[in-house]
């Protein structure tokens, strides 16, 4: 019972600080900024499972791989929006959370522990600990890697037949996928590549691999009522990858010139963050304070 009340009030206090704050005229400008930029792809969404998973990373709007610099910038940016000096007392709760998240993520030790606790593995490109959907490496890293264009794949299973340690069938999608790079000896791999009737197995540069493997995964498609919905992936994954890399580069270049590498959040993300706040708030002792405050009618948040 109390959960619902709390999250609503947190939502109000976190996502709409302007409603009770006078003199902070800047807020509406920043709202419109959010809208302009909301189409930009954000890294942190990419491996998100359909279930709602809110955490410190989302609170700060950074990816799980982000480095200290990115976290710092995101933190400062959000503080500038929500710090009680700017939004008044409403910002207190939210600012507390930001401080907490910042403290944990800035300390290598605490961050590792936190990552473990939320079951989030930090993946760096080219490292060996990739979860489902990404190929792992057998042996040392090489300049080229195998990639299956799953759009073209007809699911014949020839490649799996010749190099079963390297390829695997995704039964749900009915297409083959690279499981382990160089999982079999070079000869078997070569045979399996040749055996593909539609030539959908490609040798690609190792640097391009993570982007390709990311883009080839079906992403949930936005639905409008009964229309749309479902899953989609780019029709031509190679040109999509090129566009993506280019976008990343311009973003970096932009980031360097203006000192901003984090992307403005969309209203939906802001709401997700507010929900995250509410959920984090619910942990442990805080719940107790909230409960009492509501019961005895102190309302200072």
């Amino acid at each position: 019972m109390s959960v619902g009340v709390v999250s609503t009030c947190c939502l109000l206090s976190c996502s709409k600080p302007s409603s009770q704050v006078h003199g902070y005229l800047n807020f509406h400008n920043s709202m419109s900024r959010w809208r302009q930029n909301r189409t930009v792809i954000r890294c942190c969404n990419r491996r998100e499972k359909p279930r709602a998973q809110h955490n410190y990373y989302e609170l700060l709007g950074v990816s799980v791989e982000s480095n200290a610099q990115e976290i710092k910038e995101a933190y400062r940016k959000l503080q500038k929006k929500y710090h009680p000096d700017i939004t008044g007392q409403q910002g207190h709760q939210y600012s507390l959370l930001l401080n907490k998240a910042y403290k944990v993520l800035m300390s290598e030790d605490q961050r590792r522990k936190y990552d473990e606790s939320i079951g989030q593995m930090r993946v760096r490109f080219g490292e060996n600990n990739s979860p489902l959907g990404y190929s792992t490496w057998n042996g040392p890293s090489r300049p080229h890697a195998l990639f299956v264009d799953e759009n073209a794949c007809i699911g014949c299973g020839e490649c799996v037949h010749f190099a079963s340690n390297t390829f695997t069938m995704d039964e749900a999608l009915g297409s083959a996928r690279v499981k382990v790079q160089y999982g079999d000896d070079d000869q078997n791999i070569e045979v399996s590549v040749q055996s593909c009737p539609v030539n959908c197995i490609h040798w690609v540069d190792t640097e391009e691999l993570p982007v390709l493997e990311f883009l080839i995964q079906p992403q949930p498609k936005k639905g409008y009522g009964v229309y749309g919905g479902g899953w989609e992936r780019p029709a031509n994954v190679f040109s999509a990858a090129k566009a993506f890399s280019k976008q990343l580069k311009t973003k970096e270049a932009y980031g360097q010139s203006s000192g901003e590498t984090t992307v403005e959040e969309s209203p939906a993300q802001a709401q997700a963050r507010a929900q995250a706040s509410a959920e984090i708030n619910m942990g442990g002792f805080f719940k107790l304070w909230k409960w009492v405050k509501e019961t005895i009618g102190i309302n200072d948040s």
Partner: peptide, 12 residues
């Protein structure tokens, strides 16, 4: 809560 058009008070 004062705003400065030149961003001189965009501080925290």
């Amino acid at each position: 809560g004062i705003n400065d058009p030149f961003g001189n008070l965009d501080l925290l």
